[in-house]
């Protein structure tokens, strides 16, 4: 109700937890509130800003907006993509749950690729630079992005990280996203492909539980296959589940520990990476037009 004059409905209409909190200070809960499922009943439009409206003043007006919520991120992603294209660098965005072996897989991958190509890594984690340290130990440059409370990388974070990394023709830039199968699905970073990593110590039904991510990915790597003899993991069922949410997805079975399946994974990258230059350059300014 209006907190100026007390007009309006007899009870506070609460449409979700957020409103319960926001309105709590102005209209203490009485126990008579009607709870409605989100998205169905809509809040009373009669309640104006902060629960107050002025009588006899200008009526509300509608302003058409039609703006995409991800427009700002997508504009940065487009800029990153143009930068990769100008440099001739393939960018892959690696996504998975925590503990799937993403960093171990990346360490083995970059150690091999760096013998032939300019390779760099952007590491995303909430805290610590442990992962970037592991990458740098292989001699490959890495920039750590700590998202703090954030659960995913966004395109402007990657844009800033790129300033410290070599991008070269025929090069490959890996982005290791924050370990999370939900939020990174939504945020384009400018990558050519999202690669989802899933390990055999997780459930076969993970693609069904997190369909947004597996639908966003072009390639699924099923990691830790060296552990299969000790587990009841049905790898064919896991592949079928991935294809169920994404009929066009490619699936490769790998072990970052034993190297099994790595020829196929490295071949997948080689087929997509551009032609490399005969002499590797530092490449720092190549992305700048």
């Amino acid at each position: 109700m209006c907190t100026t004059c007390g007009c309006g409905t007899d009870h506070v209409h609460i449409d979700g937890v957020g409103h319960a909190l926001a309105r709590g200070a102005q209209a203490p809960l009485t126990g008579q509130e009607q709870f409605a499922p989100a998205g169905n009943a809509l809040p009373e439009p009669a309640i104006g800003a902060a629960g107050v409206h002025a009588h006899g003043t200008t009526a509300a007006r509608i302003v058409q907006v039609e703006r995409d919520l991800l427009a700002a991120n997508d504009a940065w992603a487009r800029r990153n993509r143009e930068r990769f294209a100008a440099a001739g660098t393939l960018c892959l965005n690696l996504v998975s749950s925590p503990g799937s072996g993403k960093t171990t897989l990346l360490v083995r991958t970059v150690a091999d690729l760096a013998r032939r190509r300019t390779v760099a890594v952007v590491e995303g984690d909430q805290q610590t630079s442990n992962d970037a340290d592991r990458i740098r130990a292989t001699g490959v440059p890495a920039v750590q992005v700590n998202t703090g409370k954030g659960c995913h990388l966004e395109a402007p974070m990657v844009a800033r990280a790129l300033d410290g990394l070599p991008l070269a023709a025929g090069g490959v830039l890996f982005i290791e996203n924050v370990g999370n199968l939900v939020c990174p699905a939504l945020f384009d970073l400018g990558e050519a492909h999202k690669v989802a990593i899933l390990s055999v110590t997780e459930g076969e039904d993970k693609p069904l539980k997190y369909p947004d991510m597996f639908r966003a990915a072009d390639l699924v790597l099923i990691n830790k296959v060296d552990l299969l003899p000790f587990l009841d993991f049905d790898i064919d069922l896991c592949e079928a589940n991935a294809r169920r949410v994404n009929p066009r997805v490619e699936v490769l079975r790998v072990s970052a520990r034993s190297g099994e399946g790595f020829a196929a994974w490295l071949g997948w990258i080689e087929r997509r990476a551009g032609t490399r230059r005969p002499v590797p350059s530092s490449g720092r300014d190549e992305a700048r037009p």
Partner: peptide, 11 residues
């Protein structure tokens, strides 16, 4: 998959 602000009502 759309995600956008359609309109606002203001005084």
């Amino acid at each position: 998959t759309q995600l956008k602000v359609r309109e606002i009502e203001m005084y």
